[in-house]
Design a protein around this nucleic acid. Sequence first.
DNA 1: AAGTTAGTGTAAACGCCGTTTACACTGGAC
DNA 2: GTCCAGTGTAAACGGCGTTTACACTAACTT
Lengths: 205, 205
Amino acid sequence: MTTRKTPIRQKSAGSYHHGDLKTSLKEAALRLVREKGPRGFSLNEASRLAGVSVGAPYRHFPDKDALLAEIASNGNELLTVEITAAAKLVSGVKEKMIACGMAYLEFCRAHPDYFAVIFHAGLDKSKYPAVEQSARNAFGTIFELALAFERTPELAMQRAVSCWALVHGLASLRMDGGLAMMLQGKTRDEPIRYLLELFLDQPYE
Amino acid sequence: MTTRKTPIRQKSAGSYHHGDLKTSLKEAALRLVREKGPRGFSLNEASRLAGVSVGAPYRHFPDKDALLAEIASNGNELLTVEITAAAKLVSGVKEKMIACGMAYLEFCRAHPDYFAVIFHAGLDKSKYPAVEQSARNAFGTIFELALAFERTPELAMQRAVSCWALVHGLASLRMDGGLAMMLQGKTRDEPIRYLLELFLDQPYE
DNA sequence: AAGTTAGTGTAAACGCCGTTTACACTGGAC
DNA sequence: GTCCAGTGTAAACGGCGTTTACACTAACTT
């Protein structure tokens, strides 16, 4: 299988300016992360993919981490969209929360590159408020659902965090590979759906 | 606060040989990971900390990742020990599983450096069977408990994976910082204990 | 139409990194 | 006392992130 799903737009041969280098760099970065992991990605190689010198990215990003941060934000936004869409497809608060959890798992399967940038690129998110904000937005989707579930915001927070942690934990373990053989095939999403259902059937405290 | 909890043993001034460079390198690596994150750690700096030239580590590890892999294995072993010890302190299968989950969370709090090396150093674990084996051993502790819980190994696996995912997810989110403010203080371990308890009270299927 | 300028690219350099190679020291086995 | 396996050093390599000084060009001004 070729990995060239999305060809990175190169600078056209004769012209001096690229046209949309910022976008090309983000695409190149995602592709490199997909192919060689978040540690295998280098700014220089992304520049080469975009057909541009190694200094050019610095006209668009203050440094490498800023590029990763922008990708992470984009990823969180995409996640928010997909979670929200999934919730819309069903009715009932409990069903919506379950749909969100399943959508999270689906997001990790469909976009491992974004997932890797968000969680495994070693980004110091406290340095990038936009990343934190986008993460809060994603989490907020499910937190608001939980609010309709619980008597107090504190309980809703606990409920939301528990659900989030459960699906995030499964996604992380899957991605990580350390327990790959344990999760091989057997552990599909159904048990998690069942667990979520079970959990959401129980009153909290 | 000084970060020099454990001084790294340096090569003594006059002598040519270090004595226990392998151990010193692992200590130095853990310290650097603690102080600057898994991406801030460099083999060269670890060598300097140990008072040794940058080529010396290659007498003890084939490459940088092999050093990280050995630390990851050590971390998994330590985790296994602590989980096992926690289970011994209580009686009853359910109580033991809960104790394991709590011990996992405590491990992440007490040893964020090991946790970071295991999960956030970008190690390709499939290249290091020892790491995979140590991870399986840790997981095996709770899987065996689950076996006493369920009718079939498949159900036990699902049960164990669910518990593991839950505590691992919470630990990851805590460590990650992306949702730091959401988890600030409010989300201590008790809700997770409650969730585990609730989950383990429910028959599976 | 010509001149100016802000934006965006290049080339070359810096120091740090991981890794390799050829060499040096040394403690213990014989 | 000699040898030698083990362990350290020094110097070099290419790749990386980043900075600096310079070059090109599209668009705006007049």
